[in-house]
């Protein structure tokens, strides 16, 4: 099974790094969409279905927390798992992200294993890239 992923980060370099890390993690990606901020992310979602969103917090126009709130307001999007990737890793910030609907949190700088582990926990994909049915209902990642 392969997945569609949306990567939201104002740095095109960071988007490229995350995309490469997901690829080398054995995660089978069908389409990888990119957006530079929350507004662009919502535009991408109007045109494409995605199985997971990986988003930064600190972005211009609409930041990651605002994007999470917008997604939660929309019945079509609110069940898409969102993983936040951010330098802002205080416990309070992580709680804010979880309360706003995030399912996982990765602190920058990260190692490829960090992304692989959170992808596995959040959307049930193993290191072999295979869909893990019993992980599909995982609620939250234990930080």
């Amino acid at each position: 099974m392969s997945f569609n992923v949306l990567i939201v980060d104002d740095s095109s370099s960071m988007r490229a790094v995350i995309k490469k890390v997901i690829a080398i993690s054995g995660f089978k990606m069908n389409n990888c969409y990119e957006a530079g901020n929350g507004i662009e992310a919502l535009e991408r979602l109007k045109e494409n279905w995605v199985d997971a969103i990986i988003s930064d917090i600190n972005m211009p126009e609409m930041n990651g927390l605002e994007l999470l709130k917008e997604l939660q307001r929309d019945s079509l999007y609110k069940n898409i798992p969102v993983i936040v990737v951010s330098t802002e890793g205080s416990s309070e910030r992580m709680n804010d992200a979880l309360q706003a609907g995030a399912k996982g949190f990765i602190k920058k700088p990260f190692l490829p294993e960090d992304i692989r582990k959170v992808l596995y926990d959040v959307i049930g994909v193993g290191s072999d890239g295979e869909y893990q049915e019993d992980r599909r209902d995982a609620e939250e990642v234990d930080f």
């Binding site: 972005m59 330098t87 802002e88 205080s90």
Partner: peptide, 18 residues
Amino acid sequence: CGNFLRKVEPDHIFDLSI
């Protein structure tokens, strides 16, 4: 900057500029 601030104040939020 983000990494440093979470070492200094792990339980508090900082707003970082672009």
